[in-house]
Simulated assay, not measured.
Amino acid sequence: MLRDAVASLELSGQSQAARQWANAEFSATAKDSLTVFLAALTDLARRAVVNNDQIYCYVCL
């Protein structure tokens, strides 16, 4: 489940995922913004796992 995969991201994993995402979809300068976004999403996913909740995230960039 994507929620669980995001919840398990460590800080280094967030940075790596943001870099790859920025390179694939955006400019390299987007990495910092995506890292902040992934940190918040990781926190949300971790809380959802603890509460056995689902998450829904709509992203429009």
Rank of each mutant, 00 (worst) to 15 (best):
residue 59 V to C: 07
residue 5 A to Q: 14
residue 50 V to F: 08
residue 54 Q to G: 12
residue 40 A to C: 13
residue 20 Q to V: 10
residue 14 Q to M: 07
residue 28 A to Q: 15
residue 48 A to E: 01
residue 1 M to R: 08
residue 30 A to W: 05
residue 37 F to H: 07
residue 60 C to Q: 10
residue 53 D to A: 03
residue 46 R to W: 00
residue 53 D to G: 02
residue 31 K to Q: 12
residue 40 A to S: 13
residue 20 Q to S: 09
residue 40 A to K: 14
residue 15 S to T: 06
residue 34 L to Y: 05
residue 32 D to K: 11
residue 11 L to A: 12
residue 56 Y to A: 14
residue 42 T to P: 01
residue 27 S to W: 11
residue 36 V to G: 04
residue 51 N to V: 05
residue 8 S to G: 11
residue 11 L to T: 11
residue 16 Q to D: 06
residue 50 V to K: 09
residue 61 L to P: 14
residue 5 A to K: 14
residue 38 L to T: 02
residue 41 L to H: 06
residue 14 Q to A: 06
residue 29 T to N: 13
residue 27 S to V: 13
residue 55 I to S: 09
residue 10 E to V: 04
residue 14 Q to P: 03
residue 15 S to G: 05
residue 14 Q to R: 10
residue 25 E to Q: 14
residue 25 E to L: 09
residue 34 L to F: 11
residue 5 A to Y: 12
residue 26 F to Q: 05
residue 1 M to T: 08
residue 40 A to T: 10
residue 49 V to C: 02
residue 8 S to V: 01
residue 19 R to I: 04
residue 26 F to N: 05
residue 41 L to E: 05
residue 29 T to E: 13
residue 21 W to M: 15
residue 29 T to V: 14
residue 35 T to R: 04
residue 33 S to N: 11
residue 31 K to Y: 04
residue 58 Y to A: 15
residue 37 F to T: 08
residue 56 Y to T: 15
residue 54 Q to H: 08
residue 57 C to Q: 03
residue 42 T to S: 05
residue 48 A to Y: 01
residue 19 R to L: 07
residue 49 V to M: 02
residue 24 A to I: 02
residue 50 V to S: 08
residue 24 A to T: 13
residue 31 K to D: 08
residue 31 K to F: 02
residue 49 V to G: 01
residue 43 D to Q: 07
residue 23 N to W: 09
residue 43 D to P: 00
residue 50 V to I: 10
residue 8 S to E: 13
residue 59 V to I: 14
residue 22 A to C: 04
residue 30 A to L: 05
residue 20 Q to A: 09
residue 7 A to H: 01
residue 32 D to R: 13
residue 20 Q to C: 06
residue 26 F to K: 07
residue 27 S to M: 12
residue 31 K to G: 05
residue 57 C to M: 03
residue 17 A to S: 14
residue 9 L to M: 12
residue 48 A to D: 00
residue 34 L to G: 10
residue 3 R to W: 03
residue 20 Q to R: 09
residue 60 C to D: 11
residue 12 S to G: 11
residue 48 A to W: 00
residue 31 K to C: 10
residue 36 V to D: 03
residue 15 S to K: 06
residue 23 N to L: 12
residue 47 R to W: 01
residue 10 E to G: 09
residue 21 W to A: 15
residue 16 Q to A: 07
residue 37 F to D: 02
residue 35 T to K: 04
residue 27 S to N: 13
residue 2 L to C: 05
residue 15 S to F: 03
residue 18 A to N: 01
residue 32 D to F: 09
residue 40 A to F: 12
residue 17 A to G: 12
residue 54 Q to R: 10
residue 44 L to C: 00
residue 54 Q to W: 07
residue 10 E to C: 03
residue 58 Y to T: 14
residue 24 A to L: 15
residue 8 S to Q: 13
residue 32 D to Q: 12
residue 61 L to M: 13
residue 33 S to Q: 11
residue 45 A to D: 00
residue 37 F to V: 05
residue 61 L to G: 13
residue 60 C to L: 10
residue 22 A to M: 02
residue 16 Q to C: 04
residue 1 M to N: 10
residue 20 Q to W: 06
residue 29 T to K: 13
residue 10 E to I: 07
residue 7 A to F: 00
residue 32 D to I: 08
residue 59 V to K: 06
residue 3 R to T: 15
